[in-house]
């Protein structure tokens, strides 16, 4: 089953954007979210970030992402409201300052996370690393490290679920409601996960070396990444977004 952050193929305008334009778009929205001091502008930025998923044609993944983040957002919101006591009380111990800070924190969290996740879903990792190397002149070993780390996330998630399955078959009951007991049950699983992960990473490194990893230069790669007017437009839009976020 495809993971939430796995690449989704498509031909939408976002799929066709230059990989670096997509990186700029995602990072630009993050920067705008953190610089923004206006709640309404922040909500608009969040709506814009979500609309990117819809433009990219990944409706289900966007919905799953938003719902997943909502859970964390609600938890963070409650924590903030509970612990921030400065400002005017609105209801019992809840203050206006607490509500405002909590709203900013959760909106910033969601606005910053969604475009970065969408960047991974709408960009092939090879295109991302190749463009980082060819255009930004990032040494290939670093680009390879970044993309490999991202590629291994679903692999290790699958591995962890297989390890849990093995332990469940031995009689370990992970369904316990006692969090301390659950943590005590999960700790031994780090050993097999570490062993298999190190083995896999070693194999991947060896395979890369055998295939001529160190022969690769900046000009290697059959694909060229031309910057087109559409990409320039996106960069201009992002710059405008950051400006609006700072000024309003």
């Amino acid at each position: 089953m495809a993971g939430l952050l796995d690449y989704s193929a498509g031909t939408t305008i976002l799929h066709r954007l230059h990989p670096l334009a997509k990186v700029f778009l995602a990072l630009g929205i993050c920067v705008a979210a953190f610089l923004c001091k206006n709640l309404i502008v922040l909500v608009c930025l969040l709506a814009f970030a979500i609309s990117l998923g819809l433009i990219g044609g990944i409706y289900r993944k966007t919905a799953k992402l938003v719902l997943g983040l909502l859970g964390i957002a609600v938890f963070l919101f409650i924590l903030q409201v509970l612990f921030i006591r400065s400002g005017t009380p609105v209801l019992l111990f809840i203050t206006d300052n607490g509500l405002m800070t909590a709203s900013f924190v959760v909106l910033r969290l969601m606005t910053a996370t969604i475009p970065l996740a969408l960047l991974l879903v709408l960009t092939q990792l090879n295109d991302l690393s190749n463009s980082l190397v060819k255009i930004l002149h990032l040494p290939y070993r670093y680009a390879f490290t970044i993309t490999t780390a991202l590629r291994f996330i679903p692999v290790f998630t699958d591995e962890m679920s297989l390890i849990m399955e093995s332990q469940t078959a031995r009689g370990v009951n992970f369904d316990t409601k006692n969090p301390v007991r659950k943590i005590r049950l999960m700790i031994p699983l780090c050993v097999p996960l570490l062993v298999t992960s190190v083995g896999r990473i070693e194999q991947a490194a060896m395979a890369a070396e055998i295939r001529g990893f160190y022969l690769r230069t900046r000009s290697s790669g059959s694909k060229d990444y031309a910057f087109r007017p559409l990409d320039a437009t996106v960069v201009a839009v992002v710059a405008a977004l950051i400006l609006v976020a700072v000024l309003l």
Binding site: E159, S166, T168, R170, N173, L189, P192, T196
Partner: peptide, 19 residues
């Protein structure tokens, strides 16, 4: 966990089991 008392399972990869 209850059925595991009756059914033991040996998987293909022992490294997923040994902890």
């Amino acid at each position: 966990s209850k059925l595991a008392k009756k059914v033991g399972m040996l998987f293909q990869d022992p490294d997923r089991q040994i902890c």
